[in-house]
Design a protein around this nucleic acid. Structure first.
Lengths: 189, 189
DNA sequence: TCTATAAAACTAATGATATTAGTCTTTACT
DNA sequence: AGTAAAGACTAATATCATTAGTTTTATAGA
């Protein structure tokens, strides 16, 4: 292999993710990503067809990381209700820890940035198991959707600054309260 | 007034909104907006400081339209629970009717596109009244946040294509089911 | 009716960015 | 040592947003 590469797809994704976290998704140009790796922008095209493909790869990494975080958070909990509660909390904690990455992955309207089916399935499968323990396998899918909607909706509105009217103070409690209300509703069936 | 203007802020916003609905938010350049009005791109700067300001105005219009739709939908319903149910349905219906506009207004991470406080307050106030009828004024705010989170989360994930694994067939029912679960939870307190 | 004025739009220019084409450089194998 | 190809670079193009400066044109007043 003549001329061993100075970068690869993985290091590029890392550099891009890092830039997104620090400078926001808008401040990330291909030359900025290249500069972070000591390389010029056109060199990146050897590893990604275009900028969209790179960002999609970043989103895939984000989705995988979120899935891991949720799995790790639910694992130690003993009973199903506690697992679901832990899952909700871990979901929001992840979004708070990586707001720019979360926004890019889940708050962008553009279909081109969508993460592939494989990753989406991995996420769904992991969560569905936890839900199924609580409500049974046959009801797991609709309940999973509702759970995901509540968690995503809350953090999305929060990150978008649409809950800021009363200051961010009450939001931790508001989230927990919403989850409790909802899990209560789930139990009723 | 010499040289009466061919455009004004309102017609520009309309043209931009129309282009966004048909070509998506990405396909909207200032020259496209200008062309739709028989004017060149730089002329738009007389009415908006920059593209961001124009898009923010579009988002304000979207938020106002959504608020109207919700108010109109809840008004005819007699009892509080029916009002809340109607509100949920109208929220999703609006997002489906104007997916690109909804996405731009509520699915964009950029803080610069955020609608102003006035519009956000108008929205909040209208909804809070309906919620207060159901759960009382003191619990209205956290419950409103939860309601909004559920509705927004569901349509956001739906519009982002993240619920597409099983086809869009079951989504209407899944939404209604989630809402019913949640309203049930609310009633418990 | 003519003309000066100011609003409003235009053309031209700049800077950033994604992307493509074509050139050069470097390492591994002979 | 010499060569071939991987891999990176420079240069060029197109598209935008944005700014500066110029031109047009309807109206108010002479």
């Amino acid at each position: 292999m003549p001329y061993p590469s100075q970068v690869n797809a993985e290091t590029i994704v890392q550099a891009a993710a890092s830039l997104i976290e620090t400078h926001g998704a808008d401040g990330v140009s291909l030359s900025a990503v290249g500069a972070a790796l000591g390389v010029k922008a056109p060199s990146l095209y050897r590893y990604f067809d275009n900028k969209t493909a790179l960002l999609r790869a970043v989103n895939q990494q984000t989705a995988a990381r979120l899935t891991s975080a949720l799995v790790e958070a639910t694992e130690p909990e003993p009973d199903p209700a506690a697992k679901v509660m832990a899952m909700f909390r871990a979901y929001r904690a992840f979004a708070h820890a990586h707001p720019a990455l979360y926004s890019l992955a889940y708050l962008s309207g553009s279909p081109e940035l969508r993460v592939g089916e494989a990753v989406a399935d991995q996420f769904g499968a992991a969560m569905q198991g936890v839900i199924a323990e609580l409500v049974g396998a046959e009801r797991a899918l609709p309940v999973l959707r509702a759970v995901w909607a509540l968690a995503h909706g809350f953090v999305a509105l929060e990150l978008a600054g649409l809950f800021e009217r009363q200051g961010g103070a009450g939001l931790d409690a508001a989230y927990d309260e919403a989850v409790v209300l909802f899990v209560g509703g789930i139990r009723l069936g």
